[in-house]
Design a protein around this nucleic acid. Structure first.
Lengths: 198, 198
DNA sequence: GCTCTGACTGACTAGTCAGTCAGTTGCGCA
DNA sequence: TGCGCAACTGACTGACTAGTCAGTCAGAGC
């Protein structure tokens, strides 16, 4: 992929984070990327095309960032904690990523073509959580009577729900983190003792 | 309030549920309500004004519906279960209400004026849950070592998160209901035995 | 030094949409 | 009967926007 195309996709992501997916204008993206709006149509057939590729781009990038963030944590339980806490973090990068994800999610409600790709990336996120829970169980960090699928889906839901609240500012990052850690210990049947989070 | 104004607000809600808040066009609302688009401007100064009042209208109506749904349930614990399950229901009315709520939430991210009213109604929803948990505790249906604020916020978050998944169809209504009931018993420290839900 | 090509632009077009306005209709009341 | 007023409309406009198009330009290859 040409450098310029990537630049345009990144500019598009910044604009979405600022104005929302529906608020995205080709002219705004062009200005943000420092190119003409005609060039946008040179690389992307339509506005919808640009939007979709930007979502994909952000998705892949977010996966890489998450992967890197948990890579050097020794236990699966620690990796799980870190993974679920990432989007509760105050870091602006994650706020933008998370906002992009919400925008993608919402757009998907009215656009079946997008819905497909949202379902796919949602599933891979849930699978990642489930994988970590299963590993943690093998490590003996999870009580035996936990139903992994249930715990996984509820933890994912809690993180999503709190993420929404963070976006409109009804809770603080610290509070969200605290609630997520509590949810993990609730769901996995382990005491809150050691917050070995990194 | 004139009947006509209410009709317009209801038409607006239907259009939002169908096209999204950003996809709402004055012309579409006018057609939906069977009036001229000029009349919309007779009752509402601007599109933003119409949108805001429609959100408020939907919010009030949803509150009433929820109130009615739980009114005749004898125990606070049962009322809590029913309240949290409402938006997981397959009923199309609730889907529209919930979708409207999500649209309002999302719009609020980019519009501080809306954010204020979203925070208010979000707070009242959370307070309602917290009130029911406190009542249930007095009834002896909640274990004593539960931190009510934590349980409340996590339950609200789980319901929100699962609601999002319902909207794009990554889980079924039955599954969502099952997970919510599980979350309640997890958070409140009571066994799943009797699902006295109505 | 000439040609060809991919990258890129400015100016334009067709279409959409919120909002305006002059005017009509119908109804309660003198 | 006719006045006044609220409710309502059709026709219009100005602002904006996605997408098009003819053409420029730098550099690779010969």
């Amino acid at each position: 992929m040409s450098d310029r195309k990537t630049e345009i996709l990144e500019a598009t992501c910044r604009v979405i984070a600022r104005e929302g997916a529906d608020g995205l204008r080709m002219g705004t993206v062009a200005r943000e990327a420092g190119v003409s709006s005609a060039l946008l149509h040179y690389y992307f057939d339509t506005r919808a095309d640009l939007l979709m590729q930007a979502f994909d781009h952000a998705d892949v990038k977010a996966d890489e960032v998450a992967e890197q963030a948990i890579a050097d944590i020794p236990t699966a339980f620690g990796r799980l904690q870190r993974l679920l806490l990432i989007y509760a973090g105050a870091d602006a990068v994650f706020r933008d990523d998370w906002l992009l994800w919400v925008e993608m999610w919402r757009s998907a409600i009215f656009d079946e073509r997008l819905a497909e790709s949202v379902r796919r990336s949602s599933a891979s996120w849930v699978e990642q959580i489930q994988g970590l829970i299963e590993q943690a169980r093998e490590e003996g960090a999870v009580s035996a009577d936990v139903v992994v699928e249930d715990a996984t889906q509820r933890l994912a839901a809690v993180v999503d729900g709190l993420g929404l609240q963070l976006l409109i500012g009804t809770i603080t990052h610290d509070r969200a983190a605290e609630l997520i850690l509590g949810a993990i210990s609730n769901e996995l049947g382990v005491p809150l003792k050691a917050r070995s989070t990194a």
